[in-house]
Design a protein around this nucleic acid. Sequence first.
DNA 1: GTATCTGCAAATTATTTGCCGTATT
DNA 2: AATACGGCAAATAATTTGCAGATAC
Lengths: 152, 152
Amino acid sequence: MHVDNLKKELKEKQYRMTPQREQVLKVFLETNSEHLGAEEVYRYLLNKRTNVSKATVYRTIDLLVELGFLRKLQFDEGVYRYELVDKDSKHSHFICNSCGKIYELKDELSAEKVLHEYILKLEKLGYKIDEVDLKFRGICPKCAKKARGIVR
Amino acid sequence: MHVDNLKKELKEKQYRMTPQREQVLKVFLETNSEHLGAEEVYRYLLNKRTNVSKATVYRTIDLLVELGFLRKLQFDEGVYRYELVDKDSKHSHFICNSCGKIYELKDELSAEKVLHEYILKLEKLGYKIDEVDLKFRGICPKCAKKARGIVR
DNA sequence: GTATCTGCAAATTATTTGCCGTATT
DNA sequence: AATACGGCAAATAATTTGCAGATAC
């Protein structure tokens, strides 16, 4: 489980483990890391009658990013979203312009292999690459199917 | 020149051509489309003693995006940035974590070919792709060279 | 016990909007 | 002349910050 990792990581950096920090991390674990924004995390905790102030949610999320538990994302809205950093699976995102769903393209749909040779090319030219961010937008298979249904 | 295209495009959609709209578009043409944010466009015009209010800058930029003259970008700051849509050259971005410069990876550095087969794969699975957004972060060749210099 | 953390409310930043006078067609 | 547009100032939305009391270690 992840919460113990947090406990350990905090201790190492002389931060303190608090109920609030545990709760915020748990939100991401419980929701299966559904690209939540800070406001959504706050609401989720309110619903569970768990008292964490909004300021603390923001501060804790920042901390979790700093410690490498969360990755900060942007999808062209006015909000930052976050996902659990899953060390062994890099992925890209597909955002459906119709239903808004964010798909994670990984495993057999991973773009990693495809990009690998390209990244080598950049590195040969002196670019040192720390992060790759690949996003697609369009219509997802589900919505595309529905749309076809309507046409007929 | 692009300003005439704007004039034409506006007429077609029964929008009006105004000095402010011309000025805002010109900023992007004159600065070689350096990924400016709205605030920067506003400042640029102030310096040139061209009077355009901030609200108009925002509204005009939105319009230019809607008309397809500008593309809206996000680089994990709290600001939207914009670039001229250059029809015949899709490109990705490399953001240097050291100097902050944003590089456009195009022409011989274009990732288009590499991604092409991958996109076909997605489309075979029913995804309809309208937009691809690929970004890298790391250290650019210039900064990498400098850093090496310091080490010695 | 002490330094870190939290909650609250106020501040900040980027962007949007309402309203009314102005300019384009 | 009619309608779209621009400027201003106020409104909004997301996030950040200062401070005083609470809590982890």
